[in-house]
């Protein structure tokens, strides 16, 4: 475990050198929130109106939180990194090191994400306060549980993207699989809470990773309920184990197929 903590720390220190890049990325985050701000302002006739149980303020806070998760994980970059590792043969240099490749990728990506988390969360909260004025009612316990749920969501999402990236051990380019995964996450989880979808989709989404990656933490933030929190966090731990298991199996089988020419 110590070696992964070391990788985590090394990536964290490296990310500190590129804070300006992260700040520039905030412009894209800002634009997405602005678009949703305009969209929900257009859809809601007045601030007291409820649609599927959500007020306008809650809907915009929901997107602020889910977009924070989306940006911290930076799935496209992670998936491309794994695919490039396989395509370029770089993965061979990681295989002969005294660590597990999945643990290495996970800890280095999370290390990079920690600075982003601090910046995105701070900026997101400022943005929400400036545009909406109101802040959801949260006490110390609920804040701790929301943060725990956010951390678990980021780790689970990262693991699922590693899982998708590892498909490049079987097919040359796993990026198209990631596009599909990311769009499912984006549409069924990031843009709308699951209550906005027909019942059939709601049932499927409730047992899918979308529930623990997007809906869970964001729902807790906008409408906290202790029972819900415990349910979501328990479900997140189950998904965490499942995601680890899937990555392990796929890597163990896929790595046998790896054929690196030169280097």
């Amino acid at each position: 475990m110590r070696k992964y903590l070391f990788i985590f720390k090394a990536e964290l220190m490296s990310a500190l050198q590129y804070v300006a890049n992260i700040l520039l990325h905030m412009i894209t985050y800002f634009i997405v929130i602005i678009i949703f701000f305009y969209l929900w302002n257009y859809i809601y006739d007045d601030p007291t109106q409820l649609i599927n149980g959500y007020s306008k303020t809650q809907m915009i806070w929901y997107v602020i939180i889910t977009e924070i998760i989306w940006n911290i994980v930076s799935g496209r970059k992670l998936c491309r990194r794994i695919c490039d590792d396989v395509k370029s043969g770089n993965i061979a240099y990681n295989m002969n090191k005294p660590y597990n490749y999945i643990g290495y990728i996970l800890s280095s990506h999370l290390g990079e994400g920690i600075i982003k988390s601090l910046i995105y969360i701070t900026f997101g909260i400022i943005l929400g306060r400036v545009f909406l004025g109101a802040f959801p009612t949260l006490n110390v316990l609920s804040i701790v549980l929301v943060i725990l749920s956010l951390i678990l969501a980021v780790v689970i999402d990262t693991l699922f993207i590693i899982f998708i990236g590892l498909f490049s051990l079987y097919i040359e380019d796993a990026n198209p699989l990631f596009w599909l995964y990311s769009k499912l996450i984006l549409i069924l989880g990031t843009m709308f809470p699951i209550e906005f979808f027909p019942e059939v989709i709601q049932k499927i989404t409730t047992v899918s990773p979308i529930y623990v990656i997007c809906y869970g933490p964001a729902k807790l933030f906008v409408d906290f309920n202790l029972n819900n929190a415990l349910n979501i966090i328990a479900f997140q731990f189950i998904y965490l184990a499942v995601a680890f298991g899937l990555c392990g199996v796929l890597y163990a089988k896929g790595v046998k197929k790896l054929n690196v020419n030169g280097g």
């Binding site: 097919i171 380019d173 198209p176 596009w179 769009k183 549409i187 906005f196």
Partner: peptide
């Protein structure tokens, strides 16, 4: 195979947004 997959999944990727607009227009 990679070429066709890139093309096919991009079509799917774009088509998935139709769902977003179905939800919005239901509101």
């Amino acid at each position: 195979w990679t070429f066709l997959m890139n093309v096919f999944f991009m079509i799917l990727n774009n088509a998935s947004f139709i769902l977003q607009w179905i939800v919005i227009y239901s509101l």
